[in-house]
């Protein structure tokens, strides 16, 4: 297989969800957002998640991103049981292994593009010089060279999302989580962002899980999972490395 040479089957899978349930609230008002999902993702994959509104996609992404924990079932990230970790330990997992891209970009206002990208490195206690160099490189790799000192308000939506992607990849995460990254963008800009993500997946072997409502966007992924009503209804098996 020529397209993706990074998918690895050696060692534990990067992500393993087993019988994961998520219930919000209790008693009569309880909402069963996830009703027992199993999901395995290997390093190097590019997975799209689709499904109607309220089907549990964002809930799954929050669990994958260690922002939330399952009500029952287990989540193993590189073999580590996330459910057993404290809030601060999960923060450290996010700091060292995860990157996030949001629908609404979520950049800090009145803060330059460079400083936004530097932010995750600050939490890694990286000295200023190295930090600025890495952040500038990341901005360059998303095609924003020369925009370092622009603040989000001075950038277009597509450019803002590129800054967000640069911020997510500057730490070289194991897993990039993108919840509707093109949801606020027009189709041309969407395609540009998807080309960027695809390139990151192919060239760097970055593992990406992306939620989208758009079939065209989902087509960029190597694998598509469909949610309906808190369950996975259609998921191709994980990609295999050619033997």
């Amino acid at each position: 297989m020529s397209g993706n040479t990074h998918v690895s089957q050696s060692g534990p899978p990067l992500v393993q969800l087993r019988k994961v349930r998520k219930v919000y609230g209790t008693g009569q008002a309880a909402v069963h957002a996830l009703k027992g999902i199993d999901l395995t993702i290997h390093a190097g994959e590019f997975v799209a998640i689709m499904g109607s509104s309220g089907s549990g996609k964002s809930t799954t992404m929050n669990i994958l991103g260690c922002l939330d924990t399952p009500t029952s079932g287990s989540y193993l990230l590189q073999g580590v049981d996330v459910g057993a970790l404290t809030r601060d330990q999960r923060a450290l997992l996010r700091r060292y292994f995860l990157g996030f891209v949001f629908q609404g970009f979520n950049l800090l206002h009145r803060t330059t593009a460079l400083e936004n990208v530097e932010l995750p490195l600050i939490y890694r206690s990286m000295p200023g010089g190295a930090r600025r160099r890495l952040a500038a490189e990341a901005l360059k790799s998303v095609g924003l060279e020369g925009r370092e000192s622009h603040s989000p308000g001075e950038l277009s939506g597509g450019q803002q999302q590129r800054v967000a992607i640069a911020r997510a990849i500057v730490t070289h995460p194991k897993l990039l989580l993108a919840d509707e990254p093109t949801g606020n963008l027009d189709s041309v800009t969407s395609r540009e962002i998807m080309e960027l993500l695809t390139a990151l997946n192919r060239e760097r072997g970055l593992t990406i899980v992306m939620v989208t409502h758009d079939v065209e966007t989902a087509a960029f992924a190597r694998r598509c999972i469909r949610f309906r009503d808190g369950l996975i209804v259609d998921g191709q098996p994980p990609e295999r490395k050619p033997s």
């Binding site: 601060d88 923060a91 450290l92 996010r94 700091r95 996030f100 950049l107 800090l108 206002h109 932010l119």
Partner: peptide
């Protein structure tokens, strides 16, 4: 802003 910081790995 606090949410963003927490998401990218800030501890309490």
């Amino acid at each position: 802003e606090i949410g963003i910081r927490l998401a990218i790995g800030a501890m309490e």
